[in-house]
Design a protein around this nucleic acid. Structure first.
Lengths: 197, 197
DNA sequence: TGAATTTTTGACTTCGTGGTCAAGAATTGA
DNA sequence: TCAATTCTTGACCACGAAGTCAAAAATTCA
């Protein structure tokens, strides 16, 4: 009955996410978006209400994608400690070839501040979901006597989540892989039983 | 020989710093600056080359001010652990009345990314200076047997610095005082000898 | 084939912002 | 008092970006 859409919405969304991730919301212009997606402005407007709408969808996509990756990563290892190491490694290995751009969620948290409800909703969701994943692994570790029981699993999960946030900030501000690795290594070491009894 | 300047440059710089801290560089317009400093645009241009120049000076001021405050705070306490607690507290107590705005240096680090040389210079300076302060205190703590010696003083300083970064991000993204306090508390506890032996 | 419908395209509008200009005001020293 | 100098003020300019409009193109169904 009508002309079919020529471009792949998911693909365009994904590409837009990459742009926002690299440049941030305010610094991304429609020209940036049309250049990388190869989709003209008005066509994007047909699907997404405006720039902000597109951004919020990109943010949600990023979060979902990240959570899936973390789950996947953790499921590959058996030992709780290895799982945590794998998660820490994941924070690092994107740094390699491209310009460091940290984490889209954290970048956005800082760009928008806490008073933007919709952005903050995504930020909070991300924090909570990561925390839950960490807590489960840490509890396993505690049961196996690998991780200190002086703090609760939840406390350690919140702690580790915070450490990871710091690492992502370090990454974006240009710290070397080695520096970040050292911090994560120390942070993990401090919570193991060997260290903390 | 000439008309004297009517406004106080230091005062205007300080006020500008507050604005940049609250709104970020890009989101701060000259209108914001003239409104809060009560100094007209052209008068600011007489003293500062452009908006960026003003910003960089504000950034340096913030860093110097922060370092002085940390030194001051640490010097008030005797016990190394109390010193560290005081520093952690300082990260929190600004949150109280105004809208949370994190740390100007970290906010800028994320806003500009690592490829802006001048901004990055300030960021790096801040990190290094804070780290040095922390390391000195931690070493004292280790000598007094209060802090674990399984990690070097430098490692723990880098670690704690990273934890503080995370806390400032949490603050800006709207975490409650209690949440942040809990994280800092856990992070400190993990490095004490009582915990880590 | 042609009407209906939706996408595509590029030009246009509007607005905010950084930065500039030139005229006017104030102060000092002769 | 007057010249020289520098600050102050508000108008002005150029530019980029978000968002809109209307014409053209493409597809489906009758």
């Amino acid at each position: 009955m009508s002309r079919p859409r020529e471009f792949d919405v998911d693909r365009a969304l994904h590409q837009s996410m990459e742009v926002f991730w690299t440049k941030g919301f305010k610094s991304t212009s429609y020209e940036d978006l049309t250049r990388t997606t190869q989709v003209k402005k008005q066509s994007l407007y047909c699907v997404f209400k405006d720039k902000r709408d597109l951004f919020l969808k990109a943010l949600a996509l990023y979060r979902e994608q990240s959570i899936v990756m973390l789950e996947e990563l953790a499921s590959r290892e058996v030992s709780p400690l290895k799982k945590l190491e794998a998660i820490c490694d994941a924070t690092l290995y994107q740094n390699e070839e491209t310009m460091p751009r940290g984490c889209l969620i954290l970048n956005s948290a800082l760009e928008f501040g806490y008073d933007d409800r919709e952005v903050n909703r995504e930020v909070t969701l991300m924090f909570d979901q990561v925390e839950r994943i960490l807590e489960r692994i840490i509890r396993d570790g505690q049961e196996q006597g690998l991780i200190t029981e002086r703090q609760t699993g939840k406390e350690l999960a919140v702690y580790l989540n915070n450490v990871l946030s710091g690492a992502k900030v370090m990454e974006k501000s240009g710290a070397s892989r080695e520096q970040i690795e050292a911090v994560l290594c120390t942070s993990l070491a401090l919570m193991t039983s060997e260290n903390a009894g």
